[in-house]
Design a protein around this nucleic acid. Sequence first.
DNA 1: TCATTCTTCGTAAATATTTTACGAAGCGCT
DNA 2: AGCGCTTCGTAAAATATTTACGAAGAATGA
Lengths: 396, 396
Amino acid sequence: MTATLKKYRQLRRDVIKQLYLNRLLTLPDLSRLTAKSLPLVTTAVNDLLQEGYILESGLAPSTGGRRASTFLLNKDKQKYIVAVAMDQLVTRTAIYDLHNNIKVEEASFSLPLSDDPALVKSLVDFLKDYILSSGIPQEQILGVGIGMPGFVNAELGLNHTFFKLKGNVGLRDYLSKELSLPVMIDNDSSLVALAEMRFGAGKAASDLLVVNIGWGIGLGMVINGSLFRGHSGYAGEFSHIPISQNNKICSCGKRGCLEVDTSLLVLVDKAKAEMAKGVSSRLQDLFADDRKSAGDHFLDAAKAGDPLAVSILSEAGLLIGKGIATLIHIMNPQVIVLGGRGSIAGKILMAPVQQAINEFCIPMLAEQTTISVSQLGIKSELLGAAILVVENCQFS
Amino acid sequence: MTATLKKYRQLRRDVIKQLYLNRLLTLPDLSRLTAKSLPLVTTAVNDLLQEGYILESGLAPSTGGRRASTFLLNKDKQKYIVAVAMDQLVTRTAIYDLHNNIKVEEASFSLPLSDDPALVKSLVDFLKDYILSSGIPQEQILGVGIGMPGFVNAELGLNHTFFKLKGNVGLRDYLSKELSLPVMIDNDSSLVALAEMRFGAGKAASDLLVVNIGWGIGLGMVINGSLFRGHSGYAGEFSHIPISQNNKICSCGKRGCLEVDTSLLVLVDKAKAEMAKGVSSRLQDLFADDRKSAGDHFLDAAKAGDPLAVSILSEAGLLIGKGIATLIHIMNPQVIVLGGRGSIAGKILMAPVQQAINEFCIPMLAEQTTISVSQLGIKSELLGAAILVVENCQFS
DNA sequence: TCATTCTTCGTAAATATTTTACGAAGCGCT
DNA sequence: AGCGCTTCGTAAAATATTTACGAAGAATGA
């Protein structure tokens, strides 16, 4: 009785999850997607209909026989998700509904990550305030999803790099208690990959790698249709693979890391050094405007075709491409997406990446992998955080 | 009825497979391992008992309550597997029983891989002869498992590098027809990983990488407890990741491949060059003996502590270690095994590999991964070929 | 235009599987 | 030895899947 109920609740959650991911589905669709029999799914759908979670929405277009009824989530049964995306400097938030629309506009908050124990307090205060001022009642919030840099163990809800807490308390559980809401945390790049897998370039792919170009170069991996996080949750440390010829010491303490030549901070420094040598660029003016970070200005300039930014970015692209060639040899992925913040300048990056692949990849392998630029762009991390909640929350 | 029978046959196969892998199991064990209910497994086991496929073997040691009956495969119901392991030069075969004992001694056969269309014919003739002269009746042979270099698509039974056939015939299907036996083919490194996963160093691990040190450096990957072959079956092309500083052109046509500095052939050449310069080594004598390949002589000498071989191997080990550091950053595996032919000299390799990891890995990541030398050694490829058959064959 | 044939949907009945309940078997402690 | 506790494995009950089939509709062709 109890085990059965548990299974049935799981099925209901799966149905809602699939409707969240696919918007409009028929009973046979749901049966296939949840791997449950049609009669069982039918019962679950009928229950959900009666409770008002979902709505019937006419008949599906014919596929050659009797037309199937379609179902979608009921907008009136309002449920929302708090999505949080953190980077080294800034934390962004948004509140989504179950149709992936933004319910409460994005807010951002300067929160430079460090070892400071007071950091957690600032985060909690900001989130409390953000949720409160949204005016959405607690019971309509499904949960809070957070993407963050560092070594994150999503399963245990720990971040081994930032937000270390005293005692044996994990970050997730602490936040959950403080906010009185379910909280899920994950690595930023994993969430970018999750978003690309569900709603982006990797929608059709079961093996997908997302290169998350931000302050560092992250990597989110989808293997066999699910996120791969490695044995202890630290897979995808692409930034620090030994590949650069540069002798500079990386922030991680090693030499030769990919990051040393490709981090946005380094690219900005390179641009500044060139300008100091007298090279002229629109970056000179842009960097003066501190409403946006220098890195974002750099990406904007590259996108707009500024020769200095383009040339520096292209050089980095070659090395990123060499790293991607390594990935292709090891993983033989179906799709690689250039995603995250840097996808703004994705078109500029594509050329050198492709060039590096031509130079360093066995053609037979290279032609098995499609490389594309993310359409989701910088939204992907927030979206991924929202998906994380929907896929793991309990609903009713 | 038909779908039910299919499921039931699958369960019987799973039971046999688990008994093959674990030798002695109880009903609750089997229920857990096959993810089927105890009553169902009990019925299947009773049927298999009655048909003589398995035997009851007393009670299991107590775990605090009533002792469970144990079951094992019946040796008298004789079934055998033909295992074939190919490398660039030599093809080895052995016949195993379901207890992993070698029933028919290993045979080897010089078959240098090339584009020659006559190659398939030679292979077929050799296998036919080997099977015939073993004296084992056709119906007692479960199938033929073959591990081979090249771009192998195990699912479709194709090798895109060697043994290309005219028309639309795949290698596996062709061999199967010629030998009148089920045939399964896979990449050599995948099978080495399969063997390590089932009976070797990775028995307890669900995320396992096996670096197959042979004429090139292969990589077999186990992710979430099953072999990962990539989108088109070509994952693990570790040999050709761009990592070497060496400017020599690789056999694949690119520069910078790991293989350029680490292939056994290259190491042998380096040793010869050193000796030509007057360095003395026992290799001088060994290379003259052509009963074994120069590569094997080289590994033997290294194992025996020959300074020239050790120094050349150590140098290669550093680069392999750098490659392994890359793998650790990307995959965060639980276990990495140094396996295949080169594991004979595994102890010699461990030191430089560990050194490279210290130099190129973030400590936090490095400490999550255990690196060990294969105990199975060169047997692993044949064993893997046998496992491939047992795990995929139809039995009765 | 309309009947015929085909395909797919979704429910009802039949079949299979899992869950739960329970007696049997056995350890370990007093 | 007796009692409490745990695990095994079967029988009965509950649940899920498969199969069968009528209904709904599309495609075809007279």
